[in-house]
Amino acid sequence: MEIVTAGLGAIFGAVIRYAITNYGKKNWPKSFSYATLLINLSGTFLLGLIFALSLPVFVYAFVGTGILGGYTTFSTMNVELLGKLKDKSYRMFWTYLIASYLGGLILVFAGFALGKLL
């Protein structure tokens, strides 16, 4: 049942991600992966927060594992990073890599700290 709950949450997460990515393709500069970075960092902050709240198993499976897990994406980020290497955009590559991984670490802590205060 937990697996089905997570799957249902992932539907919402992925559709929101797809909508933001589509919006970004139309409205944001194509030179950098703003959409995926925004999605991954905001989702990471929220997951840290949700985790700190110690929610019941099924609520966490739906919101945390499902919605936020399906919203953020590790694979798209890596394929985009690879694309920057292919294009020899090394500065973009390192900026994106460091912004994602360092930003992710900082934001998961920030979300967790905020959740503990609530």
Binding site: G70, T72, F74, S75, G104
Partner: peptide, 16 residues
């Protein structure tokens, strides 16, 4: 790609 693999992988859980 965006649906299945995008939801299969996760950046937020990696950080958590």
């Amino acid at each position: 790609s965006t649906g299945f693999v995008g939801a299969f992988t996760t950046f937020s859980s990696f950080n958590l």
